[in-house]
Amino acid sequence: MNAVTFGALVRRWRDRLDPADAGFTRTAKSRAPGLRREELAGLAGLSVEYVLRLEQGRATNPSTQVVAAITRALQLRRPERDQLFRAAGLLPPQDGMVDHHVPPGVQRLAARLGDVPIGIFAADWSLVWWNQMWNALHGDPSVIPQPERTIVHMLFGTGPAAAYLRPLRSTAGPEAFASTIVADLREVSERYPADARLAALVAGFRQSSPEFERLWATAGPSPLISDEKTVTHPEVGDVTVDCDVLTVPGADLRIVTYTAAAGSPDADKLDWLRVTAGQSYGPVARTN
């Protein structure tokens, strides 16, 4: 690892990122342009001390997950992302693999929709970006160990991932959500046959989960469509929302949003969650 180059790149790109583009409110007390070190640490899911050590070249050999988290937090474009990976002594993500990179424009758009619960998923249904309203509605995904932060683990796994998912009902039926995810994952597996991590994810659940195996064996074309879901929240009770899945052409991402009609009781519940979510602290993004 070229620690000096890595740290210099992180500092340079942190200084150029407008806090507003990351969902933070610029105040008169802001000492300098750019993202504060504390804000970068929060977005990347790292400690402030560790970010400082990286920038000063005192921390070496950051993991792939750490570098990926920093690239997303800094909203780097692909050439810059690859440059940061190489500065860390790592190979950039290769073609033919599921890409967890969230383009800067997508992050800016999501950051400006802070009143809407938003989660951004990679093609393998790994959760790679979410905001405070997602936390408020569903709970903080950072409690889930990084390798298990996927919808597949939430639906078919055990442990923290399964415990994270709050009771969720769909108007399409009790099995509709799970069958749609499995059908989409099967299609994704056909598009990324060289992705070893994706193959291991599928093989592991086909062996460990009879329900996953049954749905996998019967999966047919199942396009991702809008749905009405009811989330049982521990503080406000049932919240019925429209769930829409938006795709990003060229990035193979899924942007999941939850909205309620203005003036409805469910919109009032989301408003209450928004007030208590601490939106002034900005969005939350973690590596997965």
Rank of each mutant, 00 (worst) to 15 (best):
M1S: 15
G7K: 08
L9F: 11
R11Y: 09
W13H: 07
R14A: 01
L17S: 12
D18V: 02
D21M: 14
D21A: 15
D21T: 14
R26Y: 06
R26A: 14
A28N: 14
R37M: 11
R37N: 13
E39V: 12
A44V: 03
L46P: 04
S47W: 07
V48E: 12
R58S: 06
T64V: 14
A68Y: 05
A69V: 08
L76N: 11
E80G: 05
F85C: 05
F85W: 01
A88E: 00
V98H: 04
V102Y: 02
V106A: 08
R108S: 10
L113G: 07
D115L: 12
V116L: 07
P117W: 09
F121M: 09
A123R: 10
D124R: 02
V128H: 02
W129R: 08
W129P: 01
A136H: 09
L137T: 05
H138L: 14
D140M: 06
S142M: 11
P147S: 06
H153Q: 03
F156T: 05
G157K: 06
G159T: 06
P160D: 02
A162M: 08
R166E: 05
R166W: 00
T171A: 15
T171D: 15
A178R: 11
I181S: 04
L185M: 03
L185R: 13
A200M: 04
V202S: 01
V202Q: 03
Q207P: 08
Q207N: 12
S208P: 04
S209V: 04
E213T: 05
L215E: 10
A217P: 00
T218P: 00
L224Q: 08
I225R: 09
D227T: 08
T240E: 13
V241W: 00
D242W: 02
D242P: 00
D242I: 03
D242K: 00
V245K: 15
L246G: 07
V248K: 08
P249V: 05
A251L: 02
D252K: 05
A261S: 15
A262Q: 11
A262I: 06
S264Q: 13
P265E: 05
D266R: 01
K269Y: 13
L270F: 11
W272E: 13
L273R: 11
R274K: 14
T276S: 14
Y281S: 15
G282R: 09
P283G: 04
P283A: 10
